[in-house]
Design a protein around this nucleic acid. Structure first.
Length: 697
DNA sequence: ATACGATTTTTTTTT
DNA sequence: AAAATCGTAT
């Protein structure tokens, strides 16, 4: 049963890679001795990606075939990055290697075995918005009175259900613990969620949670399949293990149940996904759940200056629920991180833009600079400023390309073509038609559901209200055309060339941009011959256009295209690094996020998030915040708790010059705040009364 | 009863 | 930007 890895490595082929030279001793241990259960505790910037990459290369060099290696990462970006690094190490792409996110690996396997679980091979993947819209239908069907008292929105209902399933708790327990104010509605909530589950199954659809749960079900109920897969995966490697939940860790365990070669890498200090039921105890308890675990520690930080690390260390020390650890720097000293209070949001953006231009003038490429924030909408003011100054940027986080309304409309058509039972897609497409709203669409779906194929739907004697006749007829024609085409890009062009184009023109002032988006989508789809594959990529990897690229108005040559500033949520910045990093909107009511604070352990998680942001920077780090916010009313805000709790002396405070102040009011505010001192309460005042207050001072 | 346009409110984080 | 709300038209 027990396999001794060294036996398999009898090859005397010379190594292409000089492991001793290219890795530090800690990393080398992981690469050479990472067989059996292994836990790699790696601090931020300690080269864990490097260790995993070299480990994979080492295994391949030693003759392990690529399809025997499973490399699970947390994001598609990380997956791509790792594979391309392995490729450049080896000189060729490791075709056949199983790499990807948990969800994409699960999907790949479920496409092979879904019929065993009562789904077809063409099952649909529902994203967050799809799930919400199906729940909305369920609420309607059950005739729930949502007006009587404050009722949870479809989004909240789905979050409850999702957390319950990912954490292995009952819905009742989750609502009782995390949504106390809705607990009295638990009966109704359970009804809605039950109906949601039932209709989702009927529609041959899986949401993101199903991908994980159904895979786990398969592994636990079908021992033959588990055995086959576990035999295939001789080496299982998991990155960002601190962000896995119970379901994921059980899946990994089953994968490794034959060979026992399971290597997990992570950092408990960077666990930031507990809202998705991630469990730090997965990583902390790994040695207990996997007997004979070898533990490796990577503690040398190659990334940041000592000044930046001092801040990071001070921050993480505030957390109680943490392994004690200290990152030690090898880089040389530079400036202390800067603390920049600005009069308001606009001034904050002006400062950031100006500083970015200064850095560029010093020779730093824009692509080595990032601006990070807690929530996607915090970047609004900055985006205006960057556009005004023609600074090109990439935007990560917030709305993704494939989530934009017009793209999803077109995708819904393709989904119907692929899976005629897809209720959510039908609802969306029907609702686009004139004279068809939520109610009529739902009644029509009831009838459509009885048909087995798209052709059958089209020949169905549908009962359609008079008002909806025209719309349904037009849709019928469209679907007929779709059923006679095959190529994904053709399908897209059929939709965008038809009535949908008129709808776009009528609906959106920026329909030109949207049509252009759709053409880009069609071009993207030209790379696919299988509709199923295209739809899978769109729902799971969404790499294309997940990045919103914004260039100055004039067109740039291909060579210049590369150099762009990055705007990103902190969550999306995980695992990445830049020479200069700005963390913006660091005020009391924005970060830590007030809603996160209501949850158990919320503060510590927000602090870890701040830690992640801090440790993204190599050389220069700026913390900025506006001291006022609001439009009609002025709200004074304190600096973020995470700034206040830092020992004095770690930061260098920057006083903005008068030229940054766009109005006298804000200048005055700065003065006022100086007088109010540190403990100024957050107050709401109208602009007028506030100005009076200024005069009195 | 239903559809739909205008208005107002509200934004955490993601596969 | 999108969702929720409200009033009017069909």
């Amino acid at each position: 049963m027990k396999e001794f890895v060294l036996q398999d490595f009898a090859s005397d082929k010379p190594f292409r890679i000089d492991y001793e030279r290219e890795l530090n001793p800690e990393q080398l241990q992981v690469v050479l001795h990472g067989d059996g259960p292994c836990l790699v505790l790696a601090g931020a910037g300690s080269g864990k990606t490097r260790a995993i990459t070299y480990r994979v290369a080492y295994l391949l060099e030693r003759g392990v075939s690529p399809e025997q290696i499973l490399l699970v990462t947390f994001t598609n970006k990380a997956s791509k990055e790792m594979l391309s690094r392995v490729e450049s190490l080896l000189g060729s792409y490791p075709t056949g290697l199983w790499g990807g996110t948990f969800h994409s690996v699960a999907n790949r396997l479920l496409r092979m075995y879904s019929t065993q679980l009562g789904y077809t091979k063409n099952f649909t993947i529902l994203d967050e918005e799809d799930a919400r819209s199906l729940i909305k239908v369920c609420i309607k069907i059950l005739n729930v009175d949502t007006g009587e008292r404050r009722f949870p929105s479809p989004g909240v209902l789905h979050a409850m259900a999702s957390y319950a399933r990912n954490s292995g708790q009952t819905l009742r327990a989750v609502v009782e613990n995390r949504y106390q104010n809705f607990y009295e509605l638990i009966g109704t909530i359970e009804q809605i969620v039950d109906l949601y589950e039932a209709r989702k199954k009927e529609a041959d659809s899986m949401d993101f949670d199903d991908l994980l749960l159904k895979l786990r079900e398969l592994l636990f109920t079908r021992d033959d399949i588990r055995q086959r897969l576990a035999e295939q995966f001789r080496y299982v490697l998991v990155d960002e293990y601190q962000d896995t939940n119970v379901v994921q860790s059980e899946i990994v365990r089953q994968f490794a149940s034959v060979h026992g070669n399971i290597l997990v890498v992570g950092d408990d200090a960077q666990s930031i996904y507990s809202f998705r039921a991630a469990q730090i105890k997965n990583i902390l308890g790994f040695p207990e759940t996997h007997p004979n675990t070898k533990t490796f520690r990577l503690t040398t930080n190659y990334r940041s200056t000592p000044e930046i690390l001092a801040v990071a260390n001070a921050t993480i020390h505030q957390n109680k629920d943490q392994f004690k650890k200290e990152l030690s720097a090898v880089r040389g000293s530079l400036d202390r991180p800067n603390l920049v209070p600005a009069g308001n949001s606009a001034q904050e953006s002006q400062f950031i833009a100006q500083r970015i231009l200064a850095l560029r003038a010093e020779g730093m490429p824009l692509s080595e600079i990032a601006v990070l924030f807690r929530a996607a909408f915090h970047s609004q003011a900055l985006e205006f400023e960057l556009m005004k100054r023609d600074i090109p940027y990439e935007y990560r986080g917030g709305m993704k390309f494939f989530e934009r309304a017009h793209i999803k409309d077109v995708i819904a058509h393709l989904r119907i073509r692929n899976n005629p039972h897809d209720e959510v897609a039908w609802m969306r497409v029907l609702s686009l038609m004139n004279g068809i709203g939520l109610v009529t669409a739902q009644k029509m779906v009831e009838q459509i559901k009885r048909a087995e194929s798209l052709d059958e739907v089209l020949s169905l004697p549908l009962k359609v209200p008079a008002r909806a006749q025209t719309g349904w007829l037009a849709l019928g024609k469209m679907l007929y055309k779709l059923s006679h085409a095959e190529m994904p890009s053709d399908l897209i062009r059929i939709v965008t060339g038809g009535d949908y184009q008129d709808y776009l023109r009528a609906e959106y002032p920026d329909f030109m941009d949207r049509l252009e988006d759709l053409e880009q989508f069609a071009i993207f789809a030209e790379g696919y011959t299988s509709l199923q594959t295209l739809l899978d990529e769109v729902s799971l990897s969404a790499d294309f256009g997940a990045v919103r690229e914004v260039d100055p108005g004039f067109s740039l040559g291909a060579a210049e295209r590369e150099d762009r500033l990055v705007l990103s949520t902190i969550h999306q910045a995980k695992g990445l690094e830049w020479d200069a990093v700005f963390v913006m909107h660091l005020c009391d009511d924005k970060f830590p996020n007030p809603r996160a604070l209501t949850e158990a352990g919320g503060l510590e998680e927000e602090r870890r998030l701040f830690y992640v942001a801090t440790t993204r920077a190599r050389k220069h780090l700026f913390f900025t915040y506006p001291i006022t916010s609001g439009y009609d009313t002025l709200q004074l805000s304190q600096p973020s708790l995470f700034l206040q709790e830092l020992p004095s002396g770690l930061l260098e405070e920057v006083r903005l010059k008068r030229s940054f102040a766009s109005t006298a009011t804000n200048d005055d505010l700065t003065i006022v705040l100086d007088h109010l001192g540190e403990r100024a309460p957050t107050v709401d005042v109208s602009r007028m009364s506030f100005l009076r207050g200024v005069e009195e001072l």
